[in-house]
């Protein structure tokens, strides 16, 4: 179902949804939510995508929080597609998000699309150090690092899916947002960041691990 591994001594679980669960810290980490993507595209006069990706993403986040009982949440950057997306967020969606935040220690890490939401509660950080790991949006190559940003995806026969990239020193999370494209896990940018024996763990009904390369 899920995929359990350890990163520099910390026990971690890659969930089939694309979230990362750290049981010792009761911490759920999600990256690249891209709330309001369809709204931004519509605002820019482009295509009118179905305006439902925010609630679809919230529904999956809700399910993970419920299942894990997480007390801490880190959103690893690019939580909103841009600053205006936050202001334009549907009221029902905003209330849903506030309900998820209630009673939890919630941290917005700064991304390249957004500095983190300005009107929502929660802490704002450029990066977070917790339990021997460091959480930031873009991978720097440091050891014990958890990051997002690249939206990695990979294939297995009959399946193309967003994936985690995992080696002994770091993990890169898939995008959790519903409308998010992806970068193939063996793209040069990602190969440069990860060790040659890194794994790609595909999300979907169950987590499936395969070598990142080849």
């Amino acid at each position: 179902m899920d995929y359990r591994f350890s990163l520099q001594g910390a026990a971690l679980v890659a969930l089939p949804s694309g979230a990362l669960w750290a049981p010792e810290a009761a911490l759920l980490v999600v990256s690249d939510l891209h709330f309001g993507k369809s709204e931004r595209l519509a605002r820019r006069g482009g295509v009118l995508l179905p305006p439902y990706e925010t609630r679809a993403t919230l529904a999956r986040l809700d399910a993970d929080l419920e299942a894990t009982g997480a007390r801490r949440v880190i959103c690893l950057g690019d939580s909103f597609d841009d600053l205006a997306s936050e202001a334009e967020m549907d009221e029902a969606d905003r209330l849903w998000l506030l309900r998820l935040m209630a009673g939890r220690e919630w941290t917005w890490v700064e991304g390249n699309h957004d500095p983190g939401p300005l009107m929502l509660p929660g802490a704002h950080r450029a990066e977070v150090a917790l339990g021997g790991l460091v959480f930031r949006h873009i991978c720097t190559g440091a050891v014990a690092e958890v990051s997002g940003h690249y939206h990695p995806k990979a294939r297995l026969p009959g399946r193309v899916a967003p994936c985690f990239l995992i080696d002994t020193d770091r993990v890169i999370l898939p995008a959790f947002g519903t409308y998010t494209g992806g970068l193939w896990s063996d793209a040069p940018e990602l190969r440069a960041l990860m060790a040659p024996d890194a794994l790609a763990v595909l999300t979907g009904k169950t987590c499936l691990a395969r070598p990142m390369k080849g």
Binding site: L156, P157, G158, R159, T206, L208
Partner: peptide, 9 residues
């Protein structure tokens, strides 16, 4: 197919 994908992985 789920069984096969698992085997392949």
């Amino acid at each position: 197919r789920e069984r096969l994908a698992e085997d392949a992985a």
